[in-house]
């Protein structure tokens, strides 16, 4: 039986379960209002490694092994690792997979990688191709800065629309059996480009893709924003969130109090993060800590997780190309955990 409903959504007959999640963040994120939810906070952002790339990798490795430990499993119990990151050739993910000897599928969806890997992982389980998968991603402020922007010590100013790449990693273990929260539907997003070409305004570049995926999800599942306890986007930031809410209103859906954005939650207003956090690690760390624990406690019963990605490359931007965006959504319902 085909599991696709509507144009873009997949409904699972036996919902795969998120049986555990682990989140690790850098020192700046560790001072955020969400600090108490994180599993581990780095004392220094180099994580006692020689390079920031190694630090990023080490965070991802710790997130994966931490999530496996929390589920009382061994690395050998994981059938497939789905992971990706922001660095060229997704080195953090593939080098971490070198440590964790399991089948590995490299994912790239820019900052949307968390829900992208969750969605693909859930499909693999529902399709009876795997029993347990690990879905993980990470980002590091200092590695992202050098790849996409300027050297760290350069004394230049950021425009007010800029966002701050989150130093963090997160991993969810999705399983066919066990106790956990159910992934009932996933909506894979389309690549949407409304012609934004400002690398310092990712929120505006991603907002149309986020609105499109969310609209498709509501249409396909015949639900509305009010049916969920939380609708959380990845890293649209303040400006991007506002734009998305407006676009949703144009589509006929009114977003209410239950809408939140990981990028806006992860830093407090006094932390000088401009429009808020961004990066794969942003949604990965918030979803695997804050959101899962609220589902555990029963405060949330039904949530939409939607990481958003700006598919940007420094080469394409310098050649004058615009920035396409993408967003993948996952509906998670509280299970008996």
């Amino acid at each position: 039986m085909i599991k696709k409903i509507g144009d873009n959504t997949i409904r699972f007959t036996l919902p795969p379960k998120i049986i555990s999640g682990y989140a690790i963040v850098g020192p700046k994120e560790g001072q955020s209002p969400l600090a108490k939810y994180f599993d581990y906070i780095l004392k220094n952002d180099a994580f006692n490694e020689k390079t920031y790339e190694k630090a990023e990798r080490k965070m991802l490795e710790q997130a994966i092994s931490g999530a496996i430990d929390k589920a009382n499993l061994l690395a050998t119990d994981i059938d497939i690792l789905l992971s990706g990151d922001l660095l060229n050739q997704i080195i953090s993910a593939s080098f971490s997979a070198r440590q964790i000897q399991t089948s590995f599928i490299g994912m790239f969806g820019a900052c949307s990688t968390m829900t992208e890997s969750l969605a693909v992982g859930a499909c693999l389980i529902d399709g009876e191709c795997a029993n347990r998968v690990a879905c993980a991603t990470c980002s590091h402020f200092s590695t992202a800065e050098r790849q996409f922007r300027f050297p760290l010590e350069l004394g230049c100013q950021r425009p007010p629309t800029a966002q701050w790449t989150v130093t963090g990693a997160g991993c969810s273990i999705v399983s066919r059996e066990g106790t956990g929260h159910n992934i009932t539907h996933v909506t894979f997003g389309k690549v949407i480009d409304f012609g934004i070409n400002d690398m310092n305004n990712m929120g505006a570049a991603m907002a149309p893709a986020a609105a499109d995926t969310l609209k498709n999800l509501f249409k396909d599942t015949n639900t509305s924003p009010g049916d969920y306890d939380l609708i959380i986007t990845g890293d649209l930031g303040k400006l991007g969130s506002e734009i998305m809410v407006d676009l949703m209103e144009n589509y006929g859906y009114k977003m209410g109090e239950n809408y939140a954005d990981c990028g806006q939650m992860i830093f407090s207003n006094t932390q000088k993060s401009f429009m808020g956090g961004s990066g794969c690690g942003c949604s990965a760390s918030v979803m695997n800590s804050y959101v899962l624990s609220k589902l555990d406690s029963g405060e949330y019963k039904k949530v939409i997780l939607m990481s958003t990605g700006a598919l940007v490359s420094t080469t394409s931007t310098q050649q004058g190309e615009t920035i396409p965006g993408i967003a993948h959504a996952v509906i998670v319902e509280k299970g008996n955990k």
Binding site: P160, F194, G195, I196, A204, L239, I243, D246, T322
Partner: peptide, 14 residues
């Protein structure tokens, strides 16, 4: 569409 969107974003820029 792109032009309209750019204009819309521009009006909201901090």
């Amino acid at each position: 569409i792109n032009m309209a969107y750019s204009k819309f974003v521009e009006n909201r820029l901090p």
